[in-house]
Amino acid sequence: MAENRYSLDFEKPIMELERKIEELKGLTAEEGLDLSEEVSRLQSRLRKLEKDILSHLTPWQKVQLARHPNRPKSLDLTELIFDDFLILHGDRLYSDDQAIVGGLAKLGEEKLVFIGHQKGKSIKENLFRNFGMAHPEGYRKAQRLMNLAEKFNRPVLTFVDTPGAYPGIEAEERGQAEAIAANLERMSQLRVPILVIIIGEGGSGGALGIGVGDKILMLENTIYSVISPEGCAAILWKNQEKVKEAAKALRLTSKDLLNLKLIDEIIPEPVGGAHRNVEQTALNIKKAIIKHLGELKRLSPEELVKKRYEKYRRIGRFKRG
């Protein structure tokens, strides 16, 4: 935590208390005073405070938490989860998109193909990663890796974390819409298991472009939305102050989406959020991967494709009559 002090407004009391604890610890070390009792008292208060704050977040605060700069990004997690990971590059058509990373991974005995959006943590990193917003070549690289997975009969694991597909002139000219649509078709037919995990921000079509699968999981404090709350507020109310209402109306939290039966499971985060204990977060994700891939592997390619089709075929709410 020490290296990056960025905190959201509602995290400020937590940071404050944490600083106090560190101060006391410092005093213990420097002055030889025994403040352990005070420290442990404050530490239990800290845990309670974190729990309290995190359990009462509004949807808009969840959006902020999902976008937290310190949140672990794809490569932070793959580093902790996989035993081996060979990153592969390029779509063979135009370039290598830095907003989507992927390659061959090993998790214990399990060999799989990993694909994930990659955001940065600093401005410099984010410029390199284009803030996790992929161009068409990112989606086409992803499809190339999916094909590889199918060819060698390995499951696909994707991490979703993007504000959306990049809205730019060149992205449009190279067929952003087609690149995403092609992936939706391909993923619906892929003859190997696909496990999708939302690890931060699930931004609309840009998220879905690597987000069609047999099981869709979300980390506890993540969001998945058809449009950003900012975009929704601008269109519906022409007013950025309505962003909180938009966040609520869109039903974009993991709990909302589980209730709507649009995702299969929520992966718990450590107290305070994924960024407060990245190792624990990675461990929780790892457990979920092992469990779900284990289950999906039992299905034949035909069963997988059929079940996946039925899963999406069912989605929709309307009145008959």
Partner: peptide
Amino acid sequence: GGARMQEGVISLMQMAKTSAAVAELKK
């Protein structure tokens, strides 16, 4: 309008649903 915002992610998933159907048709 693209995916209809008033139905949230349910609308977004219509993209996957229709695409899956298109893929079947092509097959």
